[in-house]
């Protein structure tokens, strides 16, 4: 089986996997970074969102062979102490209900706010539209993104 060198949360990993294995499963099952979630496996829900070179990306659609050479960040590596402005905003607003979708939501929001620190409601709604929350915590997410934006600008 081929091996791949991955750079995740500023650490180097070497994994053995079929080259078509989605990065999602490599993260979860092999590297034990289980904060990245599985829900649809086809790029429709955003539960598996990670950053690759600073951009929000769906790890269920990214094959491990494509991930070599990328700078990968998962929810575990977003901040050292769980105090990224987005995480803090999520806490202040108490966004999560069941919580399952939230690491994906946070990763999408964090990447978005890197590019746009003064977003309008419309822009937030567009940016977050790819992330499903079955508990429909959407209004709290929108509020939290606004709170985080203030902190980041």
């Amino acid at each position: 089986m081929p091996t791949f060198n991955l750079k995740i949360n500023n650490k180097a990993y070497t994994v053995e996997a079929d080259s078509d294995t989605p990065l999602l499963w490599v993260l979860r099952d092999q590297i034990n970074l289980i904060g990245t979630k599985y829900s649809c496996g086809i790029g429709q829900c955003g539960a598996c969102t990670i950053h690759t070179d600073g951009i929000a990306n769906r790890s269920c659609l990214l094959q491990v062979s494509q991930a070599e050479g990328m700078n990968i960040t998962t929810i575990e590596g977003l901040s050292e102490y769980g105090d990224h402005p987005v995480q803090e905003a999520w806490k202040a607003i108490d966004v999560p209900q069941c919580g399952y979708c939230q690491s994906g939501q946070i990763m999408t929001a964090a990447a978005f706010l890197e590019k746009n620190t003064n977003p309008s409601s419309e822009e937030i709604r567009n940016a977050m539209n790819g992330n499903i929350c079955r508990c429909a915590s959407y209004r709290s997410i929108e509020e939290a993104v606004k709170v985080a934006a203030k902190k980041m600008s």
Binding site: I34, T36, Y38, I75, Q87, K91, D94, S103
Partner: peptide, 23 residues
């Protein structure tokens, strides 16, 4: 009083909590 979800810190940092996370 407004009380945050007791698992909030684990949820926002991606700690194992759910069935799918159990190993």
């Amino acid at each position: 009083t407004k009380t945050a979800n007791v698992d909030i810190d684990k949820i926002i940092t991606g700690k194992p909590l759910f069935g799918l996370d159990y190993k």
